[in-house]
Design a binder for these strands. Structure first.
Lengths: 345, 345
DNA sequence: CGATGATCCGAGAGCGCTCTCACGGCGCCG
DNA sequence: CGGCGCCGTGAGAGCGCTCTCGGATCATCG
């Protein structure tokens, strides 16, 4: 039934085309330096036999795999509560397939998994890695660095400062936050609160920095740390209302948190945006657009981030043979954000 | 700098341990039939050299890859609006890594991609495939069948009826729908509406069937087709209110749709659940729990579905050498659903 | 104590491919 | 018209591994 008919080899193609294996190989790999009649004959043989190169055999000699690992290190279920990674994956996938590379997905669940991932990457099964590691204390980046696998990070790693050669793609979290808060200021709000994300993540820390850039001497009571979840947003909002019942605006570190805040505000009878203006971050459509009122928020182009990560990595891989010095290693990219005005502010 | 120090080969390990390559290989692959002192020596050599087997070389001879493709064929962005696939992926990933298999992710974007995926699978780069193909007219399953790659489908494929050997994992959509509608009936509701999903997807069709099982002669005006999105849910709800302003319950084909319906009901001043009871499907936490009021819904264990798919596939792969007849090919599995009661019904 | 297995190990072939290198044929220049 | 160089092609080595098969070792039993 499912008897795997032995797949044709290059040898078979060569025989059928009446050429040597070497020539057949040349044609399969682009056909440079082979004269036309032969090229055509080989192509036809490939067609007729349904030949597909054996990737394992090829990798064995080329030491290339045309495969890239995507490592998502997120113990929390949070990953899946929002489409963040899904969108990045889509972007990555598009770019990789455009360059005939495969995407090997590595999800990690805990410390043990880190060792496994490290071993896998060190094992040279893939040409490079795209790594999402959100937390400051994550040992994974170190392992990867150690494995010597070309890597691009998603989001600025917390420890990226000193080291050179660390390449990442990030949104302009700080700039986006500044814009959001300036918008609130422009609306005449003066008692602006900020619900942060988990501050061991650079994105959250950067957004807080942006907030502070504008609200230089904000009342510390107007800042409360939260965790990017709706429930956390609710808690934070209650806390804020208790501390400063007179607040007139809230900048939430993401849309989910903002949604939680909105619920509490409604529950307490505060009108949005009349009494309290609210701005989120991410522009997660199902949340931002469907919330009541629709959420003003800072958009980041997540899919583009993914695409860019892949592009940077591929460029780096492509020039591996080339002398590093000339073109220079690709450097990190920070993508701009845009303020999307809806009803909440 | 990033000069890849040549990785140690089995040969090197063997030399260091003072044994032959064959023996070293045996130890690396479990060590059966090798006497203790040698095993220890080889193990130590592996440790000291940091040896990692070259998967390409191994695959070349074993014709196994210990890799499984996950194919997600969903042109719509809908995929990423809900965490459905993300959760399945998690389940799949857990099961695969538990058995030392890699996960190669293939996202398809359109018709051209299908050819690419077909070629890839036919190319024998992976041992098997897990395929999510939601639409009836999708050519992908055919291609895959043709490629002769062992496959397990996520969700019942529409054309699965006649063919034998098609293995899938699905939720009991029909049974879950029945339970939901019965619950509404038990609440004393009599004018129960149903907002369906896209009926070219079996999950949506099955839920509709479940609805009809209970509401045998429902007014056709109480059934309106939608698309699993919140916006679609709003449209459908408006339509329903126009057709049958006296309706007293709504069973929505998923939570997103239910959320849209809730918004319209609130907007129109209908109280939930007093005036209209609402039930969703999926138990997508961020939506169901955070909606106002929290949504009564039918839960399916999505992660478990993923895990099960992987398990079925691995079992099938494992017994490939074995005679098919004895153990029998693994058959499809339909997972039960449970009604989660919250405030909306 | 010799014969007979059973057990453990090593030699070597070969998986399918790429790539170097040598060779034959051709055009060109002197 | 002979020699030089270049281009297109084929022969063959070798990538790192698994696995078969034969030989060596040792225990066991007649």
């Amino acid at each position: 039934m499912t008897d795997t008919a032995p797949r044709p080899t290059l040898e078979a193609v060569a025989a059928r085309a009446g050429v040597s294996r070497a020539t057949a190989s040349r044609v399969v790999n682009g056909g440079d330096g082979v004269r036309e009649p032969l090229v055509a004959r080989v192509r036809r043989a490939v067609e007729e036999l349904g030949y597909v190169p054996n990737q394992a055999a090829r990798s064995l000699v080329t030491r290339r795999h045309d495969a890239v690992a995507v490592v998502i290190a997120e113990p929390e279920t949070r990953v899946f509560a929002d489409p963040f990674f899904a969108l990045q994956l889509r972007g990555i996938s598009k770019e990789l397939t455009a360059h005939d590379n495969q995407l090997v997905l590595l999800l990690t669940e805990g410390r043990d998994d880190h060792a496994r991932v490290g071993r896998y990457l060190a094992g040279g099964h893939v040409d490079g890695a795209l790594v999402f590691s959100l937390h400051l204390d994550d040992p994974l980046p170190g392992l990867i660095q150690h494995a010597g696998v070309p890597t691009v990070f998603g989001g600025r790693p917390g420890w990226s400062d000193g080291r050179s050669g660390v390449v990442y793609v990030d949104s302009d979290n700080r700039g986006g936050a500044r814009e959001a808060v300036r918008h609130l200021v422009g609306l005449g709000r003066t008692r602006i609160a900020h619900i942060t994300g988990p501050l061991d993540q650079t994105s959250a820390a950067d957004r807080l920095d942006g907030f502070r850039d504008v609200m230089v001497d904000a009342d510390p009571r107007l800042i409360v740390e939260s965790d990017f979840t709706p429930a956390g947003g609710e808690r934070a909002m209650r806390e804020l209302l208790e501390r400063r019942p007179d607040l007139d605006a809230v900048f939430a570190a993401n849309d989910l948190t903002a949604a939680g805040a909105l619920r509490v505000l409604r529950e307490r009878g505060r009108r949005v945006p009349e009494d309290v203006a609210v701005i989120g971050f991410d522009d997660m459509l199902p949340v931002a657009e469907q919330s009541d009122p629709p959420l003003t928020t800072v958009r980041q182009d997540i899919e583009e981030m993914g695409r860019l990560m892949a592009r940077l990595l591929l460029r780096r891989l492509g020039s591996r043979s080339t002398d590093q010095g000339v073109a220079g290693a690709p450097s990190s990219v920070v993508l701009p954000t845009t303020l999307v005005r809806r009803a909440s502010a």
